[in-house]
Computed example of a mutant assay.
Amino acid sequence: MSIWIWLDGGVSYQQNKTRGQKISCWFGRRLALRHKNVTVHKTCRISPESRINPKGGTISIGAGTSVSYNTAIQGDVSIGCGSSVNANCTIVGYGKEGQVTIGSNVRIAANAMMIAGNHVFDDVNTPICKQGIRPAPITIHDDVWIAGRVNITAGVTIGKGAVIAAGAVVTKDIPPYSVAAGVPAKVIKMRI
C-alpha cells in the first residue's frame, strides 16, 4: 500500500479537496514535470502513481485535467482542458506521425488503451521486434466519452460528442455525435 492512498483518501478519481489530496496532486505534477518536454497546467490533478514520460517526444496536459493512478502517458501526447483520464489507462504516441491528440472535456474511463503505432511484421524471416513500428495518429475531438476497457488503434479519429461503449475496439473513424459499440466498433445510433 502506498503513502498516496493515505494522503488522497483512496479516491480513484484524482481530486484536490483535502490537504492530503492537494499534496498528492502537487507531487504528481512535480513528478510529471521532472521530464523536459512535459507541460502540465498548474490546475491539473495528476496522481503521483501515474507514469508520464515523453520518451523523446512532447506531452502537454491542459488546465483542469485529471490523470488517475496507474495511468501511463508516453511519447507524443496532447490532452486539452477539463478532461479526465481514469485509472489504469495507457496512452502512447509515436513521434509527430503517431501523435495522440485528445480534446477538451473528454472523459476516458478506466483501463482504456490508445496506442498510435503498430509493429511491422511483413518479413517472416526477421523477428517482429526488429522490424520497427508503423505510426499513425489518434485524434479524439472535444466532448467525447470513452467508456471502460476501450481500445483505440492507430490511425483513428473520433468526432466531437461521440460516445464509445465499454469494451469496444475502435479500428475505424467514428463520426461526431455518434454512439459506437462492439468489436470492431460500429455506430449503433446517433445522439442527434
Rank of each mutant, 00 (worst) to 15 (best):
T157N: 14
A154D: 09
M113C: 13
V120M: 11
Q131T: 11
E97Y: 09
D122Q: 10
T71H: 04
A168T: 06
P54V: 12
G62N: 06
T43H: 06
A112F: 04
A166S: 15
V77G: 06
V124W: 10
E49P: 13
P127F: 10
G155D: 14
T171C: 12
Q99N: 14
N88I: 06
V144L: 12
Y94C: 08
V124I: 15
G161Q: 10
V67A: 02
A168L: 02
V106D: 00
R51K: 15
Q74W: 10
V156W: 03
K96D: 12
G75L: 05
T90D: 12
V85P: 02
A110N: 03
A109E: 12
G57C: 09
V144C: 08
T126V: 14
A109K: 03
G103K: 05
T153M: 13
V106K: 04
S104K: 01
I102H: 07
A110L: 01
R45N: 14
N125M: 10
G117W: 02
G64F: 00
N86T: 00
P137G: 09
G56L: 14
A166V: 07
N118C: 05
E97N: 10
I102C: 08
V170G: 09
A63E: 14
I158C: 02
R134M: 06
I133R: 01
M113E: 06
T157I: 15
G93R: 09
Q74D: 07
N105I: 02
A116H: 08
T153G: 01
D123R: 11
N53T: 09
G132Q: 03
I102N: 08
W145I: 13
N105Y: 02
D143P: 00
S104G: 00
I115R: 11
V77K: 04
S47C: 11
P137D: 13
S50A: 15
S78V: 15
K55I: 04
D122S: 14
I158G: 01
V85D: 01
T126H: 03
I146F: 10
T90W: 05
V163D: 00
E49H: 02
V156C: 11
V120R: 07
A72H: 11
G95K: 06
I146P: 05
T71K: 00
I73P: 01
V156E: 11
A87F: 03
H119V: 14
A87T: 09
I152R: 01
A165S: 14
F121I: 15
M114S: 07
S104F: 10
P127R: 08
K96I: 13
G159Y: 03
A168R: 00
A87Q: 05
S78G: 02
S50Y: 04
G56Q: 02
P54D: 10
A166P: 09
Q131P: 10
S47H: 09
G161W: 07
N125R: 04
G82C: 12
